[in-house]
Design a protein around this nucleic acid. Structure first.
Length: 313
DNA sequence: CGCAGACCCTGCAGGC
DNA sequence: TGCCTGCAGGGTCTGC
């Protein structure tokens, strides 16, 4: 389950179960789940087996479980990945099982974490932890004191902080928009600028901000950029409070349950339905091999440059 | 470097 | 009924 709220729901579900647990064994049922694992650093199964998990951390859409030896088990759910907590005797008769980790917890006993993934865009890997570039806590885990807290998996280091991260820089975000000629939605989806935002919440934040997805980012006045950032935070926060969005059985928490935010969407998936602000039917338009949803009346492309360019820069 | 597009994979809905 | 097309919330890579 893709975007920040859904990934956070998974992280929060895993954290109490995996923290302090030891991996007793692991089964890799489909090697495609390990495409982001660098075999040069060692065999996945060997590195995971016997590892003691220190925490469950998230930045944007990436999750990781720090283990000893300065490494972490890194997970990305891609478009259709699930991480499910199960009892050891669960049949696991799933259609797309990829990896099973058998855990032993000093208080909770034995159980499994199963990684399922229909479309195989998700992945698990063991990666080394490197210090964060800014020296701040790497991601959200509810614990900022662990030895691993200011370290990030090497393959996640290029991912920007997400807007709910206390160390996120609003100024840097505004500056990044100001120097991008691309449409503002494309920039919102650039995980190197801001992480955690995907197609759904980009459409929702743009609707809330009355911005056309193709509006050149550099054309936004700094004040408008800050409003947009506020809208992103608002929609992510509200979705999180409702357990995330789900459109089908793929998007579930660690117990297999869906979220409720779908009922709160104003643009995404509402093509042909009236805009809840002005009543004009929402339109769906092609965008990067996907779709954008917007209100053709509230979210118009503004041709006039509303921001002064800086020729000296 | 920034940018736009292609690509990875599977399953499902809808049109014919 | 079956075939075909298009579509799906991800990141990464390539070529310009």
């Amino acid at each position: 389950m893709p975007e920040l709220p859904e990934v956070e729901v998974v992280r929060a579900g895993l954290a109490p179960a995996v923290t302090g647990a030891t991996v007793s064994s692991v089964e890799v049922l489909d090697a495609r789940a390990l495409t982001r694992h660098d075999a040069a650093s060692g065999d996945f199964e060997s590195l995971v087996t016997g590892a003691r998990i220190e925490a469950a951390v998230r930045r944007g859409k990436f999750l990781w479980l720090p283990i000893a030896s300065g490494r972490a088990i890194v997970g990305h759910l891609g478009m259709s990945g699930q991480l499910l907590l199960r009892t050891p005797d669960h049949p696991g008769d799933d259609r797309h099982p990829r990896v099973r980790m058998h855990l032993e917890h000093p208080e909770h006993g034995e159980y499994r974490v199963d990684f399922l993934d229909q479309r195989t865009f998700g992945s698990l890997a063991v990666d080394r932890l490197v210090p964060t570039a800014d020296g701040a806590v790497a991601g959200y885990s509810g614990d900022v004191t662990g030895e691993w807290a200011r370290s990030i998996p090497a393959q996640v280091a290029h991912i920007a902080r997400d807007p709910l991260d206390p160390a996120f820089s609003d100024d840097a975000f505004v500056a990044a928009l100001a120097r991008r000629a691309s449409g503002v939605k494309r920039v919102l989806l650039d995980q190197g600028v801001v992480s955690g935002v995907g197609n759904i919440y980009a459409d929702e934040a743009l609707w809330a901000s009355r911005l056309h997805p193709e509006q050149p980012a550099a054309a936004l006045a700094p004040r408008r950029s800050r409003e947009l950032l506020g809208a992103v935070r608002d929609v992510l926060g509200r979705a999180l409070a409702e357990g995330g969005t789900s459109f089908d059985a793929q998007y579930v928490n660690v117990n297999g349950a869906s979220g409720y935010f779908e009922h709160s969407l104003n643009a995404y998936g509402r093509a042909g339905l009236p805009c809840s602000r002005c009543g004009t039917p929402i339109v769906r338009e092609p965008f990067m091999n996907r779709s954008s949803h917007r209100c053709p009346r509230c979210q118009r492309l503004r041709r006039a440059a509303i921001r002064q360019t800086s020729p000296g820069a």
